[in-house]
Amino acid sequence: MLYHFTARRTVYGLILFFIVLSGFAQMPIFDRYYVSDIPGLGWLAQFYVTHVIHYIMAALLLGLCAYVAVDFFLYRRFSTGASRADRKSAGNRSSIATRNSLPTRITISGMVKIGALSGLVVTGCFMVVKNLSLVYFPHGVVIGLDLLHLLFGMVLLGATAYTWIRRRTWVV
């Protein structure tokens, strides 16, 4: 595993954990089912706290998505080799060998996750706009956004669980 892939996977994993947790916390379930009674998890029942955490995680996720997308595009199109950190983590192999190990193709499970993430980003962005003052969305649109956001979240969770268990990567 290349060095920067490990780092970004760790960051992505942390963001995903907190954004999913704070996302589910938007529903009044953690108090009902005693989860927020667990010491240290009381914040899960505080809607404004989880709302802010969800927003912060969403901003970080947007930043990471943009970073990964641009990085992938640039390296696939123009790269002549891997970074120094990558060469170091690849263990003194030649730059050509390291270059050849750079991923160029997105896997099917990666496609599913990218699709779900894209759906989450699009619906999430509209929901952020909806929450601004003096912005009115038709009621059907609001319900649709809420349900689609939840649906994309469930797809992402399912695909993530699958790739984690089967040890599938985003790219090959």
Binding site: I56, L64, A66, Y67, V68, V128
Partner: peptide, 28 residues
């Protein structure tokens, strides 16, 4: 708080893309 953080969501992807370009330029 949510309204203020909405701005962060505009800035974050720009910053992410800039970081990737910067990294690529440095390696080049």
């Amino acid at each position: 708080d949510g309204s203020n953080l909405a701005l962060a969501m505009v800035i974050a992807p720009v910053a992410g893309a800039a970081a990737a370009v910067g990294k690529f330029y440095k390696q080049m």
